[in-house]
């Protein structure tokens, strides 16, 4: 039964990495900004941004348990399914709209990214890079990748739209999206060379061109 401590260890390491991801996102946000976090989970990122940057933050979340966690954490949360669009939000009504580690788990990916561009003056998207070399090794070995950034089996994963950094670059180019900054990280550290091969997490900051 080595399974349990192993998972606990992964969870702890993930929490530390998560803080570094948050810090990287925070560097792209101005203090006091009005921020919308789509798929905000328990509100951890918004809590971090509130505490470090005093942002006026709102989360969008569909899951009951996460909504309750947000309320407990004192995070403003709007319970809705973002697959149904962001019609409850006016154009340019937020300084920043964030989709953190959720892009790969939505069905209406294209529509949601375009909606984010409508609602936010700026958009931040982060996602696990499917092109990361360890994931490629899994594929070459004949299996779907399982890693700290993709911690699911093929049969229980919520991820439905995996993409690589090269794929997302092409998506942005094809949709007239102006990428202001891109940061690629592995284990919380920035990756400079061969990002699509060596990076496990991709972070984009963009707006309508």
């Amino acid at each position: 039964m080595t399974h349990v401590p192993e998972q606990a260890h992964v969870h702890f390491a993930e929490a530390a990495t998560e803080r570094r991801d948050f810090a990287a996102i925070a560097r792209w946000i101005t203090p006091g900004a009005k921020v919308l976090d789509l798929g905000c989970g328990d509100g951890a990122l918004l809590g971090y941004l509130r505490d470090t940057l005093n942002v006026r933050g709102y989360g969008v979340e569909k899951d009951d348990a996460n909504v309750l966690a947000c309320v407990k954490n004192g995070i403003n949360v709007i319970q809705m399914n973002l697959e149904e669009g962001l019609s409850g939000f006016d154009a340019n009504s937020f300084d920043v709209v964030i989709l953190s580690q959720t892009l790969q788990a939505v069905y209406q990916t294209e529509r949601i990214v375009l909606e984010m561009l409508r609602v936010g003056k700026e958009v931040i998207v982060t996602f696990p890079n499917f092109g990361y070399w360890k994931h490629r090794l899994h594929i070459i070995a004949g299996n779907m990748p399982v890693s700290p950034s993709l911690p699911y089996q093929w049969y229980d994963t919520p991820n439905v739209h995996m993409c690589t950094i090269a794929d997302f670059d092409a998506f942005c180019a094809g949709h007239g999206i102006h990428v202001r900054e891109r940061l690629v990280m592995t284990d919380g550290k920035a990756v400079g060379v061969l990002p699509n091969l060596l990076g496990s997490l991709a972070m984009y900051r963009f707006q309508t061109a």
Binding site: Y58, V67, N76, V77, I78, Q79, G88, S93
Partner: peptide, 21 residues
């Protein structure tokens, strides 16, 4: 209720909205 929420958001008020099943 979502209409109320939207108007509160437009005014940048602190709001939480729970849509209970």
């Amino acid at each position: 209720s979502r209409e109320i929420v939207k108007a509160l958001l437009d005014n940048e008020l602190s709001v939480t909205y729970a849509e209970l099943t």
